[in-house]
């Protein structure tokens, strides 16, 4: 199946707030970019809330333990992340959206679409599991060649984490080589959902300031009529 059917796509929300998310492989620089967006919007007087992937306390211990002793299957890996997301969505993301705030999310359901499928789950099944999530108002995709991201990661911390290298997939015994293969597959998944999910693609190989300029321009246009003192739901 080339593309998921329309009914599996996320539906736009009607909350007074705005939801802006960033996606990209590890080392794409997306976290840096969204931090700069947060600083900028806050300095303009907007109420901003930030949330990131896999950060809820609820399943953190389980996920950590499962990763450590390699007891996670693709399906349990997927469902634990789905639980984390559902928890953050209900507790952290929807309330500020309803209160008219700008929510910034470092990774969103698209991370699950890509990773879970690469680990072996069915594409449509993953989309169904996350079907209740609201469609972001803007989804930035920081697209970067593998070699660039690899260089960024190894320059700053020299060690690749097992899961960002996809070591659990047994693609290659060498972490660097495994990273190339794994992130390469993730890239393919991102590329394939770019059109259907309406990603704003940013060339993440460029310097930080240039990217940020482009990102801010997109947000400025999109915020258009959004008021700093918006209605609440």
């Amino acid at each position: 199946m080339a593309q998921s059917s329309g009914e599996l796509l996320l539906q736009p929300h009607t909350y007074p707030g705005r939801l802006i998310i960033v996606e990209g492989i590890d080392g794409s620089g997306k976290s840096t970019q969204i931090r700069l967006v947060q600083r900028w919007l806050t300095s303009l007087g907007y109420n901003v809330f930030f949330t990131e992937w896999n950060s809820a306390e609820l399943v953190k211990k389980t996920t950590k333990k499962g990763k450590k002793n390699r007891s996670l299957t693709p399906t349990t890996f997927s469902l634990l992340h789905a639980t984390d997301f559902a928890h953050r969505l209900v507790s952290n993301i929807l309330p500020p959206l309803k209160a008219g705030m700008i929510v910034l999310a470092d990774r969103y359901v698209y991370t699950a679409y890509a990773r879970d499928h690469v680990r072996g789950c069915d594409r449509d099944w993953v989309r169904k599991v996350y079907r209740y999530a609201p469609k972001p108002d803007i989804a930035f995709y920081f697209k970067v060649p593998i070699e660039v991201s690899l260089k960024r990661i190894t320059m700053t911390r020299q060690i690749l984490k097992d899961f960002e290298a996809g070591m659990d997939l047994n693609l290659h015994p060498d972490p660097i080589e495994s990273f190339r293969l794994f992130q390469g597959m993730i890239l393919e998944e991102y590329d394939r959902m770019t059109a259907e999910s309406g990603f704003v693609v940013i060339d993440a190989a460029r310097n930080i300031a240039d990217q940020q300029k482009q990102v801010r321009a997109v947000i400025e246009t999109s915020l258009g009529t959004y008021s700093r003192k918006p209605r609440i739901a």
Binding site: T75, T76, L80, A82, A86, Y132
Partner: peptide
């Protein structure tokens, strides 16, 4: 700490 969604997903993970 559970809402209906996380309740459902956690049990699904447990079953899986």
């Amino acid at each position: 700490l559970l809402n209906p969604l996380t309740y459902s997903l956690l049990y699904a993970a447990d079953f899986a």
